[in-house]
């Protein structure tokens, strides 16, 4: 039931992206591709578990490579208008994540969840989110939050990665020693997913509103 709810949130967000996110830029394209991938991953993970009754962690271990790549690219895309030389920061973030990911895969094995890599990625992503808001506040540009895709997209990322700190910290312990708390962690992840995909959907509507405003002003 929980997996179905997650798939539903992700699918709604994917449809919202297809309907409201217009434009020919890389961010629009990558967002649609990434959300499509999210739906495929979640569905295939769910089906794998149902059919084989085996762990689907390896599917999510592959998926997080794309997740980190998309999120860091998205942050790079929104910080870029404020700071010209932000590309090295984006590349460094992803390389650090990859290094920790590979180290984890070699030491713990590929079939165990890469918690350390996810935690490192979360810290770096939260740092980039705060860096975006810092630049937004410092900037001379006046933005309307109501119609700003960047503000809401980054807000969703900040909520998800900052909010998942407890989940990430407890996950290892709980999987091994405290199975009773597993259910609550699953509900936390469901809530975080609802927040992430809910705010992202709203950000796509903002983008559409902004586009309409631009076309009506010409």
């Amino acid at each position: 039931m929980i997996s179905s709810a997650n798939i539903l949130f992700e699918f709604i967000c994917f449809v919202m992206a297809l309907c409201f996110l217009k434009g020919n830029d890389k961010f629009t394209l990558f967002t649609k591709l990434y959300l499509g991938l999210v739906c495929i991953t979640e569905t295939s993970g769910f089906l794998w578990m149902m059919c084989t009754n085996k762990s689907n962690i390896w599917i999510f271990n592959i998926y997080i490579l794309f997740e980190a790549l998309y999120i860091s690219f998205g942050l790079y895309h929104f910080i870029k208008p404020f700071k010209k030389n932000v590309k090295p920061l984006y590349i460094a973030t992803y390389l650090i994540f990859i290094a920790v990911y590979l180290y984890g895969s070699f030491t713990r094995g590929f079939f165990k969840f890469q918690t350390t890599a996810i935690m490192v990625a979360s810290v770096l992503i939260v740092f980039l989110c705060l860096y975006y808001y810092h630049n937004l506040m410092k900037s001379d540009k006046i933005i309307s939050i109501r119609n700003n895709l960047g503000f809401w997209w980054v807000a969703a990322v900040l909520f998800f990665y900052f909010g998942s700190t407890v989940y990430n910290l407890f996950m290892n312990v709980i999987f091994s020693n405290k199975p009773f708390a597993y259910e609550i962690l699953v509900y936390i992840m469901l809530t975080l997913n609802a927040i992430l995909y809910g705010i992202w959907s709203y950000s796509f509507i903002c983008s559409s509103r902004h586009q309409k405003l631009l076309t009506s002003s010409y």
Binding site: Y133, L136, M137, I142, I143, I145, A155, L158, F159, F162, G163, T165, V166, Y167, F170, K178, F180, A181, I184, L185, I188, I195
Partner: peptide, 28 residues
């Protein structure tokens, strides 16, 4: 333990809410 997890997650979710409210007010 369940209560601690719920409470800590709430705290970690409330912090960005206040941060965003502050940023929104500042931009306004």
């Amino acid at each position: 333990i369940v209560n601690i997890i719920i409470l800590a997650t709430c705290v970690f979710l409330i912090a960005p809410v206040f941060l965003l409210i502050y940023i929104k007010e500042y931009l306004r």
